[in-house]
Amino acid sequence: MKIRLDEEINRLRKTLLEMGNGVEEAIGQAVRALKDRDVVLAKQVIRNDLLINRLEVEVDKICLKIFALKQPIAIDLRFVASSLKVNNDLERMGDFASRIAEDVISLASEPDLPVLDELYKLTELGQQMVKNCLEAFMQKNVELAQRVIKEDRQMDDYYETVIRKIGPYVHENSERFETGLAIINIGKCLERIGDHATNICEDAIYLTEGEIIKHQKT
């Protein structure tokens, strides 16, 4: 019985990682599509979101199967319970990547875009956070989880910079109001992705230490 439980948990790990890779790739592709004004790539990101949604259902099924048939205890129980929540966070991240891609399509005809550098910074940090939060969760690495939680503050700072810079731009180019809005939306999506990465890291800490650190101001 123990071997079977291990096998199921390994399958869960694999599917979660596959989902994480999909999300990470979706974010990267969405922003590359923005960089190159590549509508085809943006559409591909939207299509790939279906795959992420399918993986979410798969993870749910595996978790419920483990609960129903194997009755996990201790670390296994915490892992499966946390996986259900991580699954939800990853799916939301995928949705945000898809929303970025939608904005990219609306921005495709724009010749040049403001505050791209800040958006790139947000993307790079966002991708890194997605990768690291899953790594922290899978490797039970509390140190890394705490680092990612700290990085979320940096993410918020970058987002604030985007907002600060886009204001005067929209003010000066009132005809490009919609462009400004799309850029803000992209920034917001990236910032929200960071928040979900933080949630996963909090789950990683719970998984490793059994301590709930959510909603605790340090």
């Binding site: 790990r13 990682l17 890779n21 790594e135 490797q139 690495n141």
Partner: peptide
């Protein structure tokens, strides 16, 4: 791959834990 995440040792890990690319996997 950031080696320090794995204590500079990938031995014994499943391929999908270290290769984070779905098409490659």
């Amino acid at each position: 791959i950031i080696p320090e995440l794995y204590d500079y040792d990938l031995f014994g890990k499943y391929y999908y834990e270290i290769i984070r690319n779905n098409p490659l996997n």
